Amino acid sequence: MAQEITHDLDALEARLGEVEGYLGLDATRATIATLEEESAEPGFWDDADGARATMERLARAKEDVQAFEEARALLGDARAARELGEELEDEESLAESEDLAARLEGALTELELSSWFTDELDLGDAIVTITPGQGGLEAQDWTEMLFKMYLKYADRRGWKVTVNDATPGEAIGLDRATFTVSGKNAYGMLKADQGVHRLVRISPTDAKKRRQTTFAGVEVLPVLPDDIEVQIDPSDLRIDVYHASGPGGQGVNTTDSAVRITHLPTGLVVTCQNERSQIQNKASAMKILASRLYEQEKAKREAELDELRGPKHEISFGNQIRNYVLYPFQLVKDTRTGIETGNVDSVLEDGDLDPFIIGFHRWATGQRSAERA
């Protein structure tokens, strides 16, 4: 029986051509040549910070070009395998062509993502904070479930996670979780999940096994690069230290290593307790505070709060961006895009969020294009 052909290689080739235009690869290649010349000049490393920034730009530019060339090679290999399979009626070659085409489709999606992220901050790291909303103690359990889901997602993407604060709830779950995600396009990707997340399930703590609806809020901030400075007056800060309540070893839990910083003019409060020393926790908390102040200032200057954070909503019914239903049926559905799956475990247990996150960015890009038209 002949191998069923499912991928249209002509359509994938058309997408590849569109991606080359989106990314402006001719200009990127010219940028690479310019940066390579700069890096070869005498005294280039005299300004170490500037040199590192240049080398990071060079690495990103080379990565985009390399990814495109690899995608083009996949297309050529897929065509060759399909032609061979059809000519010789060879099932193995046809199967190889399908495998290569599937890999090409995934590579094109990643390249398209890069073209959608136009803000420099989109390319960098993210600070994610999850807090419980309506639902009492069970909202704290939901907060921990989301925390674990994002850890799994980061692992799937090859991102590094640094937990800044994971405060245990009163009886179950977490009262708050803040963590930094480091990796390519981490902020650009994760900002799709900023908002209210709603869980519907049979209550695990209710003896009568009644259905419970709980909420948690996800905030996503960019980690500011070194060349963006936020001026913070030390006199505007109240800094409290206390015993850490989360994991971290005996040294953490028996010393006043946890730090809470309150920015008095704005009322912003940041905590960090997962490092072993008070100095490290303070440094991490200050980075998070700087990102939050930057976000506020940018929103004030540009009057475009939705670009970074989205409109602020109460963490309750009617404001959710995604529903996770475990009972009476199983479904995860994004309220903005309509994307859904009945495989709840793949999302919550395995962190398979790409269909939702990539789907949101594709939808949002289409919305922006329609508004400009």
Rank of each mutant, 00 (worst) to 15 (best):
R72N: 12
W363L: 08
G342F: 08
T129G: 00
D10Q: 09
A244S: 15
L289A: 01
D334H: 06
A101M: 13
E41S: 14
V19F: 06
W142E: 00
T254M: 03
P328R: 06
E83C: 08
A370R: 06
F317Q: 14
Q367K: 03
L137N: 10
S114R: 14
V241C: 11
D64T: 07
T54F: 08
R210P: 14
V269G: 09
K191V: 05
A139G: 15
R29Q: 15
S277W: 08
K300P: 12
P234C: 04
G338C: 01
P132G: 00
L23Y: 13
P247E: 12
D99L: 11
I357M: 11
F356W: 12
A107D: 02
R57H: 11
D125R: 01
G133S: 05
T254Y: 04
D77A: 15
G158S: 08
A53Q: 13
P42N: 07
T335Q: 04
P168G: 03
M149V: 01
Y150V: 03
A107W: 04
T129F: 03
L16A: 07
W159H: 09
E69S: 13
H313K: 15
D90I: 14
T129H: 00
Y22K: 02
D334M: 01
V19P: 09
L305F: 12
T34K: 11
E83V: 07
P311T: 09
L100C: 04
K298S: 15
H243T: 12
V65S: 08
L293E: 09
G124F: 15
R276W: 07
N343Q: 13
P222N: 10
W363T: 03
R72T: 15
G24R: 05
P311N: 10
E302F: 05
V65L: 04
I5F: 09
G173R: 04
G188E: 06
V128R: 03
F317S: 15
W116H: 15
K62M: 05
P265Y: 07
I172P: 03
G158P: 04
L35M: 00
G249L: 08
R336P: 06
L151G: 00
E13P: 05
G183R: 03
R176T: 04
S235I: 06
M189S: 11
L113N: 09
E314S: 15
E83I: 06
K62T: 02
T31A: 13
H7I: 11
L348T: 01
V19Y: 01
Q273F: 03
Y324I: 01
L16Q: 02
E70P: 12
A33V: 08
D354T: 13
R201E: 10
F329S: 00
Q231K: 07
D122V: 11
H361S: 07
A207M: 13
H197M: 04
S316K: 15
D49M: 02
R103K: 15
Y187Q: 04
R156K: 10
L108C: 09
L104S: 02
N323Y: 01
D306W: 07
D227T: 13
G169V: 02
R15V: 05
S203D: 11
A258V: 03
E86W: 11
L12S: 01
N319G: 05
I315S: 03
Q278S: 00
W45D: 12
N274I: 05
W142D: 00
E170D: 10
N319D: 01
V196K: 12
A171K: 08
D175L: 14
